[in-house]
Amino acid sequence: MTQIPDVARTRDRVAKHLVGREHELELVLSAVAAGRDIVLEGPPGTGKTTLLRAIADEWGIPLFYVEGNADLTPAKLVGHHNPARVLKEDYSRDNFVPGPLLEAMQQGGFLYLEEFNRAPDDTLNTLLAALAERRVTVPRAGQVVAQPTFRLIASMNPYDNVGTTRLSSSITDRLCRLAVDYQDEAAEISIVDLRTGQGAELGALLVADAVWVNRATRRHPDLRQGSSVRGAIDVVLVANQLAALRGVSEAADSTTRLDPESAYPRLVLDAMAVALSGRIHLDEAAETTPERVLRQIWEDRFILTPAAAQPG
């Protein structure tokens, strides 16, 4: 593919596969169609990868995925000469093994660099020529010129500052940026329902409860970072298996659901401990545990909120 297809048609087709990301879809499509590289900034589980993969699939453009970390060297990103062939034949273009950056440039694909700000400075600096001039010169191998559809799409988590690198202005000046936040409650309920295959009344109740407690982790004062929608998906999946093990079938009864001593609320609490305790991150100053925080959130949902809603 040598050029980007019709953007309006792409938007309409891709939107059918996404939940609640129409605005972000339009902005990303407009940026890449304009020939711009872009960084998507937001917490994990906000659909950044899903959005990008849907666009690439619709356009038939290859997607090259790279995880940014301290081990991502320039050679891993750009490529390297085959050591065995170098010893046998010396350096040449034929024994050069291209990395994901060069492959994306040669095939006109999207290079998706996740956790962009975790990559070392010298690795990020190797991107400058690709971003500015759409070409990279490799010693002893020659020059690679990018196809017109090549784009760098990076992502980063603004809430995580452990092991991250401060991006230089020479990098950020060459990138567009889009903030991608969590979706609203209705959209997350739709996502969880879709991903867990729920349809019965029990499923609808469980999905609503799982999404509520999961979203509550993002506003709890003792947490630096809460859980993405993946946490709610796992709460539902684990809770359903627990329900089968314990023979819990009365969860569809709204009266039973609001009784904290009944089987259903206890089942949700246990599922939360398994699905969410490893996903939430305590504030450094908080003197508590993930389990205590989850217990507080559970009490808010199944004890305090119902009690406040009672007449009198």
Rank of each mutant, 00 (worst) to 15 (best):
C176W: 06
R151E: 01
L178M: 04
Q147R: 15
D184M: 07
C176H: 09
V138H: 07
F150Q: 02
T172S: 09
P148D: 06
T149F: 02
R195P: 01
I171L: 15
I191N: 04
C176G: 12
I171Q: 07
A154C: 05
S168G: 15
N161V: 12
E188W: 08
A186E: 14
N157S: 02
A187T: 13
D160W: 03
I189E: 14
V145S: 08
A141G: 09
V145P: 03
S169T: 13
G163C: 06
T149K: 03
A129C: 12
V136Q: 07
I171M: 11
A179T: 11
N125W: 07
A132N: 14
Y159A: 13
L127C: 06
T164I: 12
A154E: 00
V162A: 13
T172V: 12
D121W: 10
A130H: 05
G163A: 09
P158C: 06
R134Q: 14
L167E: 09
L152K: 01
D160M: 06
R151T: 01
R177V: 02
Q183E: 04
A154I: 02
N157H: 05
A187P: 05
L128P: 05
R134E: 10
T172H: 04
A146G: 03
V136C: 07
Q183W: 01
L128V: 09
E133K: 12
L167I: 10
S168A: 14
N125A: 13
S170N: 13
S170L: 12
L194A: 14
D160F: 05
D122Y: 13
V138C: 07
V162I: 13
T123E: 08
Y182F: 11
A132R: 09
V145D: 12
I153Q: 01
N161H: 15
P148C: 04
A132W: 04
P139H: 09
L152C: 02
M156Q: 15
E188A: 08
R174E: 00
R134N: 11
D121T: 15
D121C: 10
D121R: 15
A179W: 04
N161E: 11
A187K: 06
T126F: 07
S168L: 10
R174P: 00
A146Q: 05
L175E: 00
P139A: 15
I189N: 06
G142P: 09
R177Q: 11
P148A: 08
S168E: 14
L194W: 11
L178F: 00
G142D: 08
